[in-house]
């Protein structure tokens, strides 16, 4: 057989980079925080991503899956993820210890249009694990605070113990350049001093919004979208300024495997960030 060796493979988008788990700890019962650095120092420092993008993470013997980046590109060198234990790859990730190696490739996807958001008011609505991708854009805006108008954060969790990055968000309430509203559906701890109720109960607390000048960013469980979108439309925020980041099955991240296709778009290339108008336009999105 004539076995041909490839002459010059420019790049192979499917080959991961070895990356090291630098730090990991539990955020809640089933969500863990991972701080990761690409093993090759030069590549670690030259890694550039946009808030809202994702990477493919692989664990030897378990496979590969997409994960949103929770850290901000304004603090380069380390990548952070909050990951719920929910399948084969995440089960394997939970068995991994600090200093172990994983595979990582990316970043992929469109991410949030942060350039268009400059000078605008930013309203971030997160529910549960929706904090994972939105923390990236929140920290990015706060790190570049003078480039944005008002920054408003609404964060809902089921119970205080299930609020991801609870301490980080609680301390953000101290800031006077951020309007931070937190809520839990129910308080079983008896120590929650903030709002109790679903995330939409926070909307009446907001000071009046300048809708045309506002970008709303939403991520949360499917049920949350229905109610939050209604609130945002009631506030008259234009449908193409309501941004949401979506989840799909992905096997490649680079528009080849087909799993994340919806109509003629690929969630991995054209998403995962879509506007509410996209969602209305492409019926299968949510």
């Amino acid at each position: 057989m004539n076995t041909t060796k490839p002459q010059s493979i420019k790049t192979n988008p499917f080959l991961p980079e070895p990356a090291r788990i630098v730090r990991t700890y539990d955020l809640t019962d089933d969500v863990r925080f991972f701080q990761v650095r690409i093993a090759d120092m030069e590549k670690a420092l030259s890694f550039r991503n946009r808030p809202g993008q994702f990477v493919m993470i692989s664990v030897l013997g378990a496979g590969e899956a997409p994960f949103s980046i929770s850290s901000t590109p304004s603090r380069p060198g380390l990548l952070e993820f909050c990951i719920r234990k929910t399948g084969i790859v995440t089960d394997a990730l939970f068995r991994i210890k600090e200093n172990d190696l994983i595979g990582l490739r990316g970043p992929y996807g469109n991410g949030f249009p942060v350039d268009n958001m400059v000078d605008k008011d930013i309203l971030i609505v997160m529910g549960g694990l929706g904090a994972a991708p939105l923390r990236s854009v929140l920290l990015y805006c706060l790190d570049n605070r003078d480039q944005f108008g008002r920054i408003i954060l609404l964060h809902g969790a089921k119970r205080p113990a299930e609020m991801i990055f609870r301490d980080e968000f609680l301390s953000m309430k101290e800031r006077d350049d951020l309007e931070c509203y937190l809520s839990v559906d129910e308080d079983d701890s008896g120590q929650w001093t903030d709002n109790i109720g679903v995330v939409t109960t926070l909307f009446p607390k907001l000071e009046s919004i300048d809708p045309a000048n506002t970008y709303a960013l939403v991520c949360g469980p499917p049920i949350m979208y229905k109610f939050v979108l209604k609130e945002l439309v009631n506030l008259h925020i234009p449908k193409d300024q309501i941004l949401m980041t979506l989840e799909r099955r992905m096997k490649c991240g680079v528009g080849k495997c087909g799993h994340c296709a919806i109509d003629y778009i690929y969630t991995c290339l054209d998403g995962p960030v879509f506007t509410y108008w996209d969602v209305l336009h492409m019926r299968e999105l949510i």
Partner: peptide
């Protein structure tokens, strides 16, 4: 096979390709 994965390295495999 696209590649062989080991803890520290990923080796691309093009051996299935022939003229």
């Amino acid at each position: 096979r696209m590649y062989e994965a080991t803890p520290k390295k990923f080796h691309a495999d093009f051996s299935h390709i022939s003229k």
